[in-house]
Design a protein around this nucleic acid. Structure first.
Lengths: 241, 241
DNA sequence: TTGCTCCTCACGTCACGTGAGGTGGC
DNA sequence: TTGCTCCTCACGTCACGTGAGGTGGC
């Protein structure tokens, strides 16, 4: 009347497959067999499975369970390490929950960085993409300056026109919007000077920062919008012919 | 000057393989290729990878990331579920840490149930095995009674002789130890009556409980010890011939 | 020619889950 | 004969990690 594999699994609170897996990886000795091939487990096997399960439940990987010997000795240094790991995991999960709380409270889209979530309602898809990309390239000071700009400077009619500009807009329209945008751009360049100092505020190399800005502008705006930006730039820098 | 796969990975804070994996599972569109076959990523891809990474870091499985659409909309109900999951995980980990604290404080072997850890120094390997097995079979009341017995009743010389008994001990020795053990056994049967009510206190069926006790006794004691138990039992029940 | 980066298979990881196909005693 | 339990392969899971072998521009 020894135990079958299923009984051993039930008694130890694991599964059939787990018990067999412990055999496969050499953590658990194979018991004697009945004449029909059925395994016959005894107390030693149950005790061993319970030891394994205890450690597994504590988060110890099976490879380490093996090296911890029979585990009926003094608690290992490994357990202290494990405790430290658990502490780290807990604080990581808490951090994640804190982020989630911000997202849920502001009903913010989940891809925009937390600091920008209060502005979420006014942010277009393009702005969001821009914020996400820049947040990987620039340091916190730069991002904070950008956030202040977006928070403090009201959008103008020219901004809306620029966003709505189709790729086939004619030259006069483009020139008109450029002239309307130029004063804004000049004002922003003065009030938020840090945004221009891309090299000093790039967190992973000035070259990548420059390339990324180019990339962002090229990907997010259509040819007409790119032309408007070019015209406005000429006006601001006094290069208007 | 589009981004290479490595640049995309670096910018998004993931790995080459992760990006390729997102292609494989259809989470990330393949970009255009350069003439030499190199992939050329744009802002749209970076934004997408950042979205994916954000959710993955929050603990969302990739299959669910796919079903959460572009994730730039209102936070999903899924996030609330996720938050609840995180809460559960955190309290589970805390529970584990609490167990670890008990083990570390008492320098107890890690396989014995927490309630018995204060007795750990006096527990033999056999006792430990017995405790572990019985704790899977009997309810808390029964185990608590057992614990009290082990805590309150000092071990006698006869107990030690019994533990040390070799399998080939002669008849006289066995009879002598049996007679020394009998009074103890009688006393325990009276003072800790619950231990005898195995059927009432078995948490997974009376039959399994009976079988398990038989199994434990047969596996943990050698023939001489089994004979001593039998002789002591006869004495206690007055069946001595 | 040598280094470096990119590419595409394709197997490995971890702790089992999940059939597939077959046997033995009631 | 039908059900039930046990057995042994052996592939699947999840999110990638890690070479293997080959190409293209400096």
């Amino acid at each position: 009347v020894a135990w079958s594999t299923r009984q051993l699994a039930d008694l130890s609170g694991t599964t059939l497959r787990a018990v067999r897996h412990y055999h496969e990886v050499g953590l658990l000795e194979e018991p004697e067999r009945h004449s029909n091939g059925y395994k016959q487990y005894g107390v030693q096997h149950l005790v061993r499975v319970l030891q394994i399960k205890r450690l597994v439940d504590l988060g110890v990987p099976l490879a380490q369970v093996a090296s911890m010997g029979r585990a009926d000795k003094e608690p290992d240094e490994a357990l202290r390490l494990l405790d430290a790991d658990l502490e780290t995991s807990i604080s990581r999960l808490r951090q994640v929950r804190a982020e989630l709380a911000v997202i849920l409270r502001h009903r913010a889209p989940i891809d925009v960085p937390a600091a920008f979530s209060t502005l979420a309602d006014n942010i277009s898809t393009q702005d969001r993409a821009m914020i996400m990309v820049y947040s990987r390239i620039f340091d916190e000071t730069w991002m904070e300056t950008l956030r202040q700009l977006m928070q403090n400077e009201a959008r103008t009619d020219a901004d809306d026109e620029f966003d709505a500009l189709g790729p086939d807009a004619d030259t006069e329209t483009r020139q008109r919007i450029a002239e309307a945008l130029a004063p804004e751009m000049r004002k922003h360049a003065e009030g938020y000077a840090a945004l221009g100092e891309t090299a000093a505020h790039s967190s992973r190399g000035a070259k990548l920062a420059e390339e990324t800005i180019t990339q962002v502008i090229r990907d997010l705006y259509n040819p007409a919008q790119l032309d408007v930006l070019h015209r406005a730039h000429l006006i601001v820098t006094g290069q208007t012919p």
